[in-house]
Nucleic acid binder design. Structure first.
Lengths: 119, 119
DNA sequence: TATATACTGAACTAAATGGTTCAGTATATA
DNA sequence: TATATACTGAACCATTTAGTTCAGTATATA
C-alpha cells in the first residue's frame, strides 16, 4: 500500500509536542536561529534542529541559512485545514449531543407524567 | 522531572492518526462497538481497541461495556482548547505576516521613489 | 592565521506507536 | 449444555520519536 501522508497527520503530530508548540509561539513573536531556540528550550542544537525539521516538514516553519546562521520563520500555512477539521468535528459533536439531549428531555417528561420506562 | 502531560499533547497526538480521525467522524454519526469500528477500518479487534483507548485517554471518546459489547461514544470534550490554541496561533500568524507585508510595502515605495536600498 | 561560533550528520539510546497473533474470559444463543 | 460472539491481555515486531554525544564542516572574528 502506497502510504500517502496527509498534511493533517504531519501537522497534528507536530503540534502534539509542547516544545514544538512553544517554538511556533516564539516564531510568532520574532524570527530566531537554531541557537536561540535551543537555548530558550534548554536543549542541544542537534535536538532543536530535529524539532525545527519536523515543523518544516509540516509546512509550519521555513528556514534559510545565511553565513553560519540558520534563521527560522513561520511558514505560509495558517493551519486553515487543521482549524477546519476541528470546526467540522465540533459541528458533528454539537449535533450528536443535541440528539442526546432530546432523549434525556423525553425521559424527563415521561417521569413527570409517571409513565413507565419503555425498556 | 515530573512530566505533566498537557491535554493538548494527548489530543493532538490522537488526531495525528487518520484511523482515529475517522473513528471520531464515525462516532459523530452514531455510536459503535469495537467490532463495528474494527470492520469499518479493516483492522483486528485488538488493534482497534488500542486506537479507542488512545481516544479515550485524550477524553475524546467514552466507552461502556454492556454484556459482551463495548459501545463507544463521543466524549464530553468539544476540543475547545485545541480550537483555541489554533485560533490564537492564527492571530499571531496574521500579525506576523502583516508586519512582513509592511516591510515589503515600504521597499516597494522606495523603489518607486528610486531611493537606495538602506543596507 | 588561529580561534571561536553555528550548524550538521551519523550513531546510539530508551521509550512510544501501530500493528499483529495467540490464548484466554465472559456472555449469548441454539 | 455446547457453540459462537465480543472482547481483552500478553507478547512480539518493526518503525518512529525525542533526545543525546561526538566528530566533523563552514564561517566569522581577533
Amino acid at each position: 500500500m502506497v502510504q500517502y501522508i496527509a498534511p493533517l497527520d504531519l501537522s497534528f503530530a507536530a503540534l502534539s509536542d509542547p516544545t514544538r508548540r512553544g517554538v511556533l509561539e516564539q516564531l510568532g513573536r520574532s524570527d530566531a536561529s537554531i541557537t536561540d531556540l535551543a537555548e530558550r528550550f534548554h536543549m542541544t542544537l542537534t535536538g532543536m534542529k530535529k524539532h525545527v525539521s519536523v515543523l518544516e516538514a509540516a509546512g509550519l516553519v521555513v528556514t534559510k541559512k545565511v553565513g553560519r546562521v540558520r534563521t527560522c520563520r513561520l511558514g505560509r500555512r495558517k493551519m486553515a485545514e487543521e482549524a477546519a477539521w476541528i470546526e467540522q468535528y465540533q459541528q458533528l459533536w454539537t449535533a450528536r449531543f443535541e440528539a442526546l439531549d432530546e432523549i434525556v428531555e423525553e425521559l424527563k417528561q415521561r417521569e413527570l407524567n409517571n409513565e413507565p420506562d419503555p425498556k
